[in-house]
Design a protein around this nucleic acid. Sequence first.
DNA 1: TTAAACCTTAAAGTACACTTTAAGGCAAGC
DNA 2: GCTTGCCTTAAAGTGTACTTTAAGGTTTAA
Lengths: 154, 154
Amino acid sequence: MAFTIKEASERLGCPAHTIRFYEKEGLLPYIKRDKNGNRLFEQDHLDWLRVMTCFRATGMKLSLLKEMVHLALDGDSTIPQRKAILNQYKEDLFRRQNELTTALDAVNNKLSIYEEIAKGKTPSESQLLVKMEESERQQTRNEGLTNEAKNFRQ
Amino acid sequence: MAFTIKEASERLGCPAHTIRFYEKEGLLPYIKRDKNGNRLFEQDHLDWLRVMTCFRATGMKLSLLKEMVHLALDGDSTIPQRKAILNQYKEDLFRRQNELTTALDAVNNKLSIYEEIAKGKTPSESQLLVKMEESERQQTRNEGLTNEAKNFRQ
DNA sequence: TTAAACCTTAAAGTACACTTTAAGGCAAGC
DNA sequence: GCTTGCCTTAAAGTGTACTTTAAGGTTTAA
């Protein structure tokens, strides 16, 4: 069973132009054509496209995907190199997981500071964006400023 | 206590030029200068820079950071909007977490297929990159080809 | 006093990954 | 036969986020 580029595009949720671009870049070898030169995608191509989309969404560069394809085309002797690439990428993924956790903590922290402000409490930590708000509040209220807040007045 | 741009850069592991760029973009308000016009960073600026770096590393766009700064400068009345932005961003972070998990599964799957090939077993799933290798192996061995493998011969 | 090591600015350049445009071929339905 | 909708290509354009360059000012140590 072969798919047209439109069918591939719909199945993957990926623009047809992007698929063509990937093929031109050598990321998608062995695509056959019908008698009019239209691309025919096999299930394996869709599978590999889906893997590439997944890797791209998580930060793998096209150049690295390209390298993996070229290595694969060079045969089994390159499996050690491909394993090394994937293990390195795995490290990247773990690092990104940590970054996401850190970011989630920071977001939750900011959200809880907003809650405290809503309740009229002063947050314990000093943070620029909160300071800017305080500065703004104090300007409009025409009240006195702390020395710290003055840092952000002008 | 104030820091020079070099000290800020070293503490954050972020190029000085990037910090200047952020200030020019309005992401870092209220930076004071010494008598020679050199920037002086307070701890709050470093804190906010660190938050921005953290958010940037996890996919927040500069335009959205800019929007948050502008909202913060507009005072407490914009807290609902800022909460909405952060909650939306939190959704993004969860989505990214899922993408990372999916990618890790895919990497581990590929690695285990390499193991199977190393052991001489044929992997159960058909995958393009493995096919390309098989095609290569069969070409060099001058053996017969399966119909499927022929899809990737030319 | 002069060289090194900082700092400043504006503007141009780069990297990456698409994305759009332009020009055109083929096939089906009215 | 002609419009619609699909497909093709090459090439140019876009968006994002830096990054580099160029030109120059100030401070410090030799």
